[in-house]
């Protein structure tokens, strides 16, 4: 079952990536794209048949976008899965502790104050991390052992950051469009530089969360019982939250606030492949990557040459798909 699921999801990821590279305003021949990609492998020498312009479209426009979609999708999904595990809460998503609201505030600040988009990603990242740091400090000061106090602190911090962000936005209506577009999420204004910046966070988080997958299963029997089995619950939770939050903040600082991926993908994986985080963690990365690559294809083709915000697509496609999975799989698996 494990290897079968892994193989299926790898094929889905590969197919989504290929589709994402091929589909677009300038039609590229799928086989030519495959040849051009294989040609990158050292020792392989293939003539792709793509023109110089087509090569530039593929390598400088399409591929960065596809790769960014894969990384952001994978990160949001695995962070969502980790949050659900660590809080034993099916409604948890990567934005639970205020990272989205904080990043939104940071981004709005960048648009309003600096008017310089080079500060956008760093300020969004700092805003997201700062919000979660405040949540963590507040949550611990209320009740050191309780996950509920953390979640409630997250609600308060997110409300405060959103209120402040709305205030800033209202005071500067000229930036309203840019801020709104960022909040809905997009993968389009990107080159390889942003991906290189994001990759270390995504890799470290994925490795840490992959390492914690067995412990997430132990946490599913509750803090007290996990503690009685010798697990230092507070420490494990902190490590998982830091890893998931770092990657989420890094992802949203580049892509904006893409919703639903972090909640729909892990639950779909859970419904299809079972309860264990040993399966949910790795498959969430892969299915999250595939899901966002596919959503992005829809975002840039449906109203072409214009684009839909990808956050709209993830919700529009994700919600009915999720309901479909939920209906077909109801009852204990």
């Amino acid at each position: 079952m494990g290897w079968k699921a892994l193989t299926i999801s790898m094929i889905v990821v590969g197919a989504s990536a290929l589709l994402g590279s091929v589909v677009g305003a300038a039609g590229l021949e799928p086989m030519a794209v495959i040849r051009a990609l294989l040609d990158l492998i050292p020792g392989v020498d293939l003539e792709s048949g793509l023109s110089e312009v087509q090569r530039n479209i593929l390598f400088e426009i399409r591929l960065p976008r596809v790769v960014l979609g894969a990384i952001v999708g994978g990160v949001l999904a695995v962070a969502g899965a980790a949050y659900q595990g660590v809080f034993r809460n099916p409604l948890a998503d990567p934005y639970l502790l205020g990272v989205a609201a904080g990043a939104g505030l940071g981004a709005t600040f960048a648009f309003v104050v600096t008017e310089d988009t080079t500060w956008l990603a760093p300020l969004a990242f700092v805003g997201g991390m700062a919000a979660v740091a405040v949540t963590y400090a507040l949550g611990r000061s209320v009740g050191r052992r309780s996950a509920t106090s953390l979640i409630l602190a997250g609600v308060a911090v997110a409300a405060f950051a959103t209120a402040f962000q709305t205030y800033l936005q209202q005071r500067n209506v000229d930036t309203f469009r840019e801020v709104y577009a960022w909040i809905l999420g997009r993968l389009n204004t990107v080159g390889w530089g942003e991906i290189v910046g994001l990759l270390p966070y995504a890799l470290v988080a994925t490795i840490v969360l992959f390492g914690a997958r067995r412990l997430l299963d132990v946490l599913s029997i509750g803090d007290d019982e996990a503690g009685a089995l010798g697990v230092r619950v507070g420490r494990v939770r902190a490590v998982v939250i830091v890893a998931a939050t770092l990657a989420t903040a890094a992802a949203v600082s580049v892509s904006g606030l893409i919703g639903f991926v972090g909640i729909i993908v892990p639950h779909t994986v859970r419904l299809l492949f079972g309860w264990s985080y040993r399966v949910i963690i790795p498959l969430s990365v892969l299915f999250g990557a595939a899901f966002l690559m596919l959503a992005d294809i829809v975002a840039r083709t449906v109203v072409s040459p214009a684009e839909l915000p990808i956050g709209v697509v993830t919700a529009f496609l994700g919600a009915p798909f999720f309901l479909l999975v939920l209906r077909t799989m109801k009852g204990p698996t």
Partner: peptide
């Protein structure tokens, strides 16, 4: 906890 003592709680959490 865990190595020396096994504990069967009154209301165990059973996923």
């Amino acid at each position: 906890a865990g190595l020396d003592i096994a504990w069967m709680p009154q209301r165990p959490v059973l996923p």
